[in-house]
Amino acid sequence: GAPPLPPYSAGGREVTMKKGDILTLLNSTNKDWWKVEVNDRQGFVPAAYVKKLDSGTGKELVLALYDYQEK
């Protein structure tokens, strides 16, 4: 199953993602919540729920390892 959710501390809205989604990583300075862009929406997802990909394009991409439903 998915890892436990860290307390929400990102101070911005969250976004929903599905397992297998490829998201653009915008900011990973917060260790628990990373800012991503998905379907032209920006928001935060739990860092433990995604994995960085080596895209080779200069853009940082992450793979959704679990479904996440915004609150």
Rank of each mutant, 00 (worst) to 15 (best):
G11F: 05
L26G: 01
L65Y: 03
A10P: 14
P6R: 01
L25V: 07
G11I: 12
M17P: 00
D40G: 14
L53F: 11
P7L: 08
T57N: 14
V38G: 08
L26H: 05
A64C: 07
K35I: 14
Y68H: 05
K19H: 06
D21L: 04
D54N: 12
S28M: 11
N27E: 14
A47T: 04
S28G: 11
G58N: 12
E70Q: 08
M17Y: 03
L26Q: 03
L53A: 04
G43R: 03
K18W: 09
R41L: 14
K52H: 09
W33S: 01
L65D: 02
N39A: 13
V15W: 06
Y66S: 03
P7C: 10
D21T: 07
Y68T: 02
D67K: 04
V15E: 03
V38L: 12
A48H: 08
P4R: 05
N27S: 13
D40L: 11
Q42S: 12
V15I: 15
E60K: 10
Q69M: 15
V45P: 01
A2M: 13
L5F: 07
D32A: 07
G12R: 07
E14C: 08
S28N: 08
Y66F: 15
L25W: 01
S55N: 15
S55G: 13
L23H: 03
L53W: 08
N27G: 05
S55C: 09
D67F: 03
D21K: 03
L61R: 08
N27D: 15
L23I: 06
L65W: 03
A64D: 00
E60A: 11
A48I: 10
F44K: 02
V38K: 14
L61D: 04
T57H: 11
V45I: 10
W34C: 03
A47K: 04
L65Q: 04
D67Y: 04
E14D: 13
K31M: 11
Y66L: 04
S9Y: 08
Q42M: 10
S28C: 08
G20A: 02
L65S: 03
V45C: 04
Y8V: 09
D32M: 08
L61H: 07
V15H: 05
L53E: 04
D21N: 07
T57E: 15
Q69L: 13
M17H: 01
K71A: 10
N30V: 04
N39G: 15
V62F: 05
L25G: 00
N30T: 05
L25Y: 02
L65H: 03
W34A: 02
L61S: 09
W33Q: 01
D32G: 08
P6W: 02
F44E: 02
Q69N: 14
P3M: 06
K71H: 11
Y49V: 02
L26Y: 03
D32L: 10
A64H: 00
G1D: 14
T24F: 11
Y66A: 05
K18H: 12
T16C: 07
E60Q: 14
W33A: 00
K51D: 05
T29Y: 08
V50R: 00
P3K: 03
S9G: 15
E14L: 09
V50T: 04
A10F: 08
E70A: 14
Q42D: 08
A47S: 14
P46H: 01
L61I: 09
P6H: 02
V36D: 00
V62G: 15
G12L: 09
K35Q: 15
E14W: 06
P3R: 05
K52W: 06
W34K: 00
K35G: 05
P7F: 08
R13V: 15
D40Y: 10
D67S: 07
L26A: 03
P4G: 09
F44G: 01
Y68C: 01
D40A: 07
G11N: 13
L23C: 08
T57L: 15
W33I: 01
N27Q: 13
K31Q: 14
K31I: 10
W33E: 01
W33M: 02
K18I: 09
Y8E: 10
E14Y: 11
L26W: 04
D54F: 09
V36M: 01
G11S: 12
K51L: 15
L5D: 06
S55M: 15
D54C: 07
L23R: 01
Y68I: 03
E37G: 07
Q42T: 13
A47N: 02
E14V: 11
K35W: 15
L65P: 00
L65V: 06
K71I: 12
K19S: 07
K35T: 07
D21R: 02
R13G: 15
T16S: 15
Y68P: 00
D40K: 12
G12Q: 07
F44W: 15
P4W: 07
F44L: 06
R13F: 14
L61W: 09
N39M: 14
E60P: 10
D67N: 07
D32K: 05
A48E: 10
L63G: 02
K52E: 07
D67Q: 03
K18D: 03
P6D: 05
S55P: 10
L65N: 03
G43N: 02
E37M: 10
N39I: 08
V38M: 13
K52V: 13
V45D: 01
K35H: 15
T57A: 14
K19P: 03
K52S: 07
E37S: 09
T24A: 11
N27F: 05
L5G: 05
Y49P: 01
W34M: 04
L63N: 02
V36K: 00
A64N: 00
K52Q: 08
W34D: 00
K31L: 12
D32S: 07
K59L: 14
L25Q: 01
P6F: 03
E14R: 07
L53R: 02
D40T: 11
F44P: 01
P3S: 06
K19A: 13
V45R: 00
L25A: 02
W34T: 02
V38R: 14
R41K: 13
T16V: 05
N30A: 06
V36L: 03
Y49I: 03
A64K: 01
I22V: 09
I22G: 00
E37Q: 13
L23E: 00
S9A: 13
P6Y: 03
W34N: 00
D21W: 12
T16H: 09
D54R: 08
K71N: 14
L63I: 14
E37T: 13
K59G: 12
G1A: 14
K71G: 15
L63W: 05
P3Q: 04
E14N: 14
N39D: 15
I22S: 02
K51A: 13
A2I: 12
R41T: 11
L61F: 12
Y49H: 03
A64W: 01
V50E: 00
V36N: 00
A48S: 12
G56I: 14
A2P: 11
L5C: 06
E60H: 12
K59W: 08
T24Y: 07
S9Q: 12
R13Y: 11
K19D: 02
E60Y: 09
V62T: 02
K35M: 15
G56C: 06
S9D: 10
Y49S: 04
P6I: 03
K59D: 11
V50I: 07
P3W: 05
T29A: 12
S9V: 09
T29Q: 12
T29V: 09
D67I: 01
K18T: 08
P46A: 02
S28K: 10
L23Q: 01
L5K: 09
K52Y: 11
Y8M: 14
P46V: 03
D40H: 11
L5H: 06
W34G: 00
L63Y: 08
S9C: 08
E70N: 12
L26K: 06
Y66W: 14
N39L: 10
K71V: 14
E37L: 09
A47Q: 04
